[in-house]
């Protein structure tokens, strides 16, 4: 049928149907009488249930891409299909954890976490219960009535994570979520993220500039170069669960680390 060839242009029709399909995406930011190109001709297909890590140095358009995928900004050209339909704005099926905390400073942890359900019009009682469950889940029990200002960076991340999960999204977009945390805390939260993801069938798109983090978490790593060019696209075939201390000496890990590192360096030239 000719219709199907339109939906799946040559070169992408071979992929299994993705949750997220990004096609020829470009994003320009007007600046004076020039355009700043953040992303150019970017295409990717994210398969359902996949943990995809986008690896790239800062300024390669990673955050721009996630903003587009979340529906917060509109692309200059190209399109993003979510489950086959073009994305036209934010959707509650897609959860987005931004790099910086966006908890409402005037709401305590509980009221922040329950907010997605509050906006959905859910009753107070059931959304409180769900918020409580999620707060326990991310390990913030006992801090329900603390305000964001009174929490440490790691605890705010946990609260943000809980708030994102409260909307019950099928797809999670995470933009360097643990970038600002110390190494121990980062390892701990990475473990918890994997625990939250495994067995749920959720699709995750995780952005980072940290090769080890990418290899610890990912099913598949895509290395991005300048303006969103794909430098490398590899499947990570390391056994799960990956112990952060043991996996580092795994020869396969070392080999992958090397090739990712080489790809990143190439992109810098």
């Amino acid at each position: 049928m000719s219709a199907s060839t339109i939906v799946h242009p040559a070169g992408q029709g071979t992929d299994a149907d993705g949750v997220l399909e990004v096609r020829d995406l470009a994003k320009h930011f007007p600046k004076g009488d020039q355009d700043l190109v953040a992303l150019r001709e970017f295409s990717i297909t994210v398969r359902p249930g996949q943990f995809l890590v986008l690896l790239g140095r800062s300024g390669c358009g990673k955050s721009t891409l996630l903003n587009l995928m979340a529906g917060l900004t509109r692309p200059t050209s190209g399109q993003i299909l979510y489950r086959g339909t073009a994305l036209s704005g934010p959707s509650t099926e897609i959860g987005y954890l931004t790099q910086h905390d966006t908890l409402m400073p005037w709401r305590d942890v509980t009221r922040n976490v329950e907010m997605p359900r509050e906006l959905r019009g859910e009753g107070k009682r059931s959304r409180r219960e769900e918020a409580q469950r999620l707060i326990e889940l991310v390990g913030l029990g006992g801090f329900e009535h603390h305000f964001p200002r009174e929490l440490s960076g790691g605890m705010r991340r946990r609260a943000s994570l809980a708030r994102m999960l409260a909307a019950d999204p099928e797809t999670l977009l995470l933009d360097e979520p643990f970038g600002a945390l110390d190494a121990q805390l980062r390892t701990e939260l990475q473990g918890e993220l994997l625990r939250l993801w495994q067995g749920t069938g959720r699709t995750v798109v995780f952005v980072t500039h940290d090769i080890e983090e990418a290899l610890l978490l990912a099913d598949r790593v895509v290395v991005l170069g300048p303006v969103g060019s794909v430098l490398l696209d590899v499947d990570v075939d390391l056994q799960r669960p990956r112990d952060p201390d043991e996996v580092r000496v795994d020869p396969r890990f070392v080999a992958l680390h090397k090739s990712l590192s080489v790809a990143l360096k190439e992109g810098a030239r």
């Binding site: 979340a70 917060l72 704005g89 934010p90 959707s91 509650t92 959860g95 987005y96 931004t98 910086h100 966006t102 409402m104 005037w106 907010m115 997605p116 906006l119 959905r120 909307a167």
Partner: peptide, 27 residues
């Protein structure tokens, strides 16, 4: 008002009214 907070409400599929009442007013 921090535009990131407005975006956060947009991500929750909040309406303009939600943005006005739950972000702009308290902020």
């Amino acid at each position: 008002v921090d535009s990131a907070l407005v975006d956060a409400v947009r991500l929750m599929n909040g309406s303009r009214r939600d943005v006005a009442l739950k972000v702009v007013l308290p902020a």
